[in-house]
Simulated scan of single mutants.
Amino acid sequence: MRKIYVIGIGAGDPDHLTLQAVKALNEVDVFFLLDKGTEKSDLIRLRHEILERHATGRPHRLVEARDPDRDRDRTAGGAAYAGAVDDWRGRRADLYARMITDELGDGTTEAGDGGSDTGDRSVGAFLVWGDPSLYDSTLAILEEILERGTVHFEYEVIPGISSVSALAAKHRIGLNRVARPVQITTGRRLAEGWPQDADDVVVMLDAHQSFRHHLADDPVIYWGAYVGTEDEILVSGRLSEVAGRIEELRAEARARKGWIMDTYLLRRD
């Protein structure tokens, strides 16, 4: 049986790897890496750095493939957005299935039986930015492949340090207050309104600075971009006082690097 590790590698700092993750890295024969284009080459470079530093226990191969493009024009919300995501995940599932089939042996080839040279390569891994359980599609895609019934494997998930945890650590805050809930949502949903029954809201995937819709409430914002990397930017303060600065910093960073990953916590009195 083929085995797949889904390994959380943290929010950008190679030191974010846990001892469990390092142990798993050294059991892998084939690492699957997705190329997201030249603008996001930093993401591939970090993965190479992690493997050079930590995957030293056994020989391994790297298999890179171009990540399927996503239809960004169908992101107005509702059914159109869900359809775009489903289509993109389906094409990713096709790619993952081919990579697993072509690059991993099924573990059944015995020495001397004349099998292919991939017969003993039965352990693969996907290196997931942050934590695989938080705003990542890898687990859902692997489940979709298994449901198709054409490729068989088992998989194990290694948790990682998420951008949310890294953000809280950098700002030296807790995500929630005593006996009060915290909600994690997207910028798209925050633009529709403040979540009910939560005064502490973590926002991810916000391409349009949806915090601007809540300037009247004037919560405190703890914002971070590229958290854990050499390009890290941190801002905190009353939203009315720092919103403009965050927008300027975000626009400049995105223009300079071609991409941006940012996360923030809004804390309402």
Rank of each mutant, 00 (worst) to 15 (best):
A225K: 05
G187K: 01
D200R: 01
E192D: 15
E52Q: 14
W259P: 05
L134Y: 00
F211L: 00
A79Q: 14
I7F: 10
Y226L: 09
W129G: 02
V182F: 07
G12V: 15
D136V: 11
G105L: 04
A80P: 09
S116W: 14
R267S: 07
E154R: 08
L46A: 02
D73V: 08
R61P: 07
G124F: 12
G77Q: 03
A255C: 13
D131L: 08
I145G: 01
G149W: 15
Q183H: 14
G105E: 00
E241G: 03
D136I: 10
A251C: 08
Q20T: 13
I141Y: 01
D269E: 14
D131C: 06
A179K: 09
D131R: 01
D15G: 12
H48G: 05
E103H: 12
A93H: 02
D217M: 00
S137Y: 02
L215D: 02
H16N: 13
D94Y: 09
I173L: 04
N176D: 07
E247G: 04
L265P: 03
Y5M: 11
A24D: 09
E247S: 11
G10D: 04
L25N: 09
Y135H: 02
V123N: 07
T186Q: 05
Y135I: 03
Q20V: 13
R180E: 15
G115D: 05
I173C: 06
T38E: 14
S240Q: 11
R267G: 03
I158H: 01
T185S: 05
F153I: 12
L146N: 00
A207N: 10
G193M: 07
R238P: 12
L215Q: 05
V201M: 01
E230T: 14
P181S: 05
L46S: 04
A216I: 06
I233C: 09
L239E: 07
L104K: 00
R72Y: 12
V157D: 01
V30S: 07
R45Y: 12
D106H: 05
F211T: 00
Y81K: 04
L205A: 09
E103T: 03
D106K: 02
L205V: 13
L17N: 05
R254V: 11
Y96S: 02
M99P: 07
V242Y: 04
H213C: 07
D136Y: 02
K170P: 12
R121F: 14
L190A: 01
E64A: 13
G12Y: 09
R74T: 06
T150R: 11
V85G: 04
S41L: 10
V182A: 06
R74W: 08
E230F: 10
A198Y: 06
V85Y: 15
T101H: 12
R188L: 12
D231K: 11
E247P: 10
S116I: 10
L167H: 00
